[in-house]
């Protein structure tokens, strides 16, 4: 009799299934998922645990730089733990007016490239507090989809990753201007390097003459002659534990390693006067550079000021 029970079983189960599908058919709208590009969930507002409740009360997502206010101090670049911010700056000309920030600070550096690699960014929000002008900030926009997969003008070492659409370029400087400024800086640096070289050769000559004189006088061994003569001179002149100043290794093409250059220069007072080898670092050393991470008072001051302004504006 399993024949008949099979048939009744089949009919009842099929009717059960049809009931289920009809139930969904009638109430499909009730259960259907979010139609993502057309509808989105409301963004949650909550305290992310940094600063005041109202000042940072947003989810951490896409970064935005108000380029007009960026002074190119690179505080954010140094704060970033994953090194995904890359800034390229050139010193403005003597009578060039780039503008002022909303805080009233005069911009002295032309930021020719300001890229943030969003594919590396971990949204830690560590880059926003150091900014003296409050111009780099987190937005609640979490949608990184884009229709154009345009490769932005990124540095060669970034290009291999082929994630052009996730490297955000915030600088509004045209590529032509960037190239021009780069060329100018290169020329300037080359001229300075040439001057330095001339100076070095002169110093070398003088040292050689002096050494010859000394040798003639004291008859010491000449093994120091093999070492860099300028170093000798420096060591003789300045602090004993100074690092070798690596006499001009060729034209310092771009403003890429300003930090190291600055550090070195501090140690080397004699060279400073002779070689301000990077035009970039001069104004940088003034405001944010040394004090932002260390002293909270100044940074909060600027923050408050900027906040007040934005509220007014």
């Amino acid at each position: 009799m399993s024949y008949f029970s099979n048939i009744t079983n089949a009919i009842t189960t099929l009717v059960d299934g049809m009931k289920v599908t009809m139930g969904y058919f009638v109430r499909a709208r009730e259960h259907v998922t979010l139609q993502y590009p057309d509808e989105v969930w409301p963004i949650p507002t909550r305290n992310i645990g940094v600063g005041e409740l109202d000042s940072y009360n947003t989810i951490r997502s896409k970064l935005v730089v108000d380029f007009e206010d960026c002074i190119g101090c690179k505080a954010c670049e140094r704060a970033c733990p994953v090194d995904c911010i890359h800034i390229e700056t050139f010193k403005a000309g003597p009578e060039e007016d780039i503008g002022t920030t909303k805080n009233g600070t005069k911009i002295k550096l032309r930021v020719t490239s300001f890229t943030i690699d969003m594919s590396e960014c971990m949204f830690c929000d560590l880059c926003t507090p150091p900014c003296p002008e409050d111009c780099i900030r987190m937005t609640p926009d979490y949608q990184f989809v884009s229709n154009d997969n345009v490769k932005l003008d990124v540095t060669p070492e970034e290009r291999w990753r082929d994630r052009g659409h996730l490297i955000y370029q915030f600088s509004k400087v045209s590529p032509e201007e960037r190239a021009q400024r780069g060329a100018e800086a290169e020329k300037e640096a080359a001229a300075k390097a040439a001057a330095l070289e001339a100076k070095r050769i002169a110093a070398e000559k003088a040292a050689a003459a002096k050494a010859a004189e000394e040798a003639a006088q004291k008859e010491v061994t000449e093994e120091t002659q093999e070492v860099n003569p300028s170093q000798n001179m420096v060591e003789a002149a300045a602090a004993p534990e100074v690092t070798p100043p690596q006499a001009p290794p060729g034209p310092p093409t771009q403003a890429k390693p300003p930090v190291e250059a600055g550090m070195e220069r501090v140690d080397l007072p004699m060279e400073t006067s002779a070689v301000p080898e990077n035009p970039v670092d001069k104004p940088v050393e003034k405001p944010a550079f040394t004090e932002t991470p260390a002293e909270p008072e100044t940074s909060t001051d600027t923050n408050d000021a900027s906040k007040g302004e934005t509220e007014n504006g």
Partner: peptide, 13 residues
């Protein structure tokens, strides 16, 4: 459309 509603989708939109 019918299949979409029965599978809790919206179908072509």
């Amino acid at each position: 459309k019918v299949s979409a509603f029965m599978q809790v989708r919206l179908g072509p939109m």
